[in-house]
């Protein structure tokens, strides 16, 4: 087994002239839950999209499970995007069929069972579902896979606190324990209990990568408190790093 599931070296990404990532070096091992934390616009979504191949880096290299991004890495990555990505005329079961066709690690029965526990009727058309229900379907699609890497982009951003707990519990009870879960969020107090490691992303660079227990032990404060401190410290900081 290799040491690292994700390896990034000097990763740069800019949109036109606007830099989003500015030299990210990152190693993440298997079998852990990692929080990708940062304010809006710090590059969280960009990093996740690079990892799942929706964006190409401007410079630098990245590998998932030792391979450059391609069909192999896509077959072991389960990605929850920050938006709806399916055609409305489909039923949830149509999507399950599609996932079963393309991903060898998709568990159809598990998906149906998850739907039942989440109160989703899998034979309903997506068009007739509420936004929250569609999000649940998308979560089911992602968590019914036994992937090596789960990339969850803001899974709890748009929902009320009660549903947040529910979603986190669904993730906790369903992810493949040999795999790694990378959760991007700015709602730190809600997720910090489930994390092994925290990565602070600040203006396109990693400013901290540490286990959460170490943070609490060393700093004597919660990850949330440390986050607020770091990101409040220099409110007027400009582009010069």
């Amino acid at each position: 087994m290799r040491d690292y599931l994700i390896e990034c070296r000097e990763l740069y990404k800019s949109y036109g002239l606007r830099p989003a990532l500015r030299g990210v070096n990152l190693d993440i091992g298997p079998g852990r839950i990692v929080g990708l934390l940062g304010p809006n616009g710090s590059g969280k979504t960009t990093l996740i999209k690079l990892l799942c191949g929706l964006l190409q880096p401007t410079r630098g290299t990245l590998a998932v499970d030792g391979q450059a991004i391609g069909p192999y890495t896509k077959s072991v990555v389960s990605y929850l995007p920050d938006r709806m990505y399916f055609a409305d005329w489909m039923k949830a079961t149509d999507l399950f069929d599609l996932f079963r066709d393309f991903y060898a690690d998709f568990d159809y029965e598990k998906a149906i069972a998850m739907c039942q526990s989440l109160g989703v009727e899998p034979r309903d058309r997506l068009k007739s579902m509420s936004k929250g229900t569609k999000e649940k379907v998308q979560l089911v699609l992602v968590m019914a896979r036994s992937a090596k890497l789960y990339l969850l982009d803001e899974p709890i951003a748009g929902v009320d606190p009660a549903a947040r707990d529910f979603i986190l519990r669904t993730i906790l009870t369903n992810y493949n324990e040999e795999g790694t879960v990378l959760i991007s969020t700015h709602l730190i107090s809600d997720v910090e209990k489930v994390l092994d490691e925290a990565i602070f992303l600040k203006e396109g660079k990693i400013s901290l990568h540490e286990t959460v227990d170490n943070i609490r032990e060393k700093e004597g404060k919660s990850v949330d408190a440390l986050f607020r401190e770091i990101f409040r410290a220099e409110p007027m900081e400009g582009g010069a790093f």
């Binding site: 069909p71 990605y79 938006r83 990505y85 393309f102």
Partner: peptide
């Protein structure tokens, strides 16, 4: 577009 999020994360070329 949005559906590309699904299509481009499928393990295909």
């Amino acid at each position: 577009g949005n559906e590309g999020y699904l299509m481009h994360t499928l393990p295909v070329r």
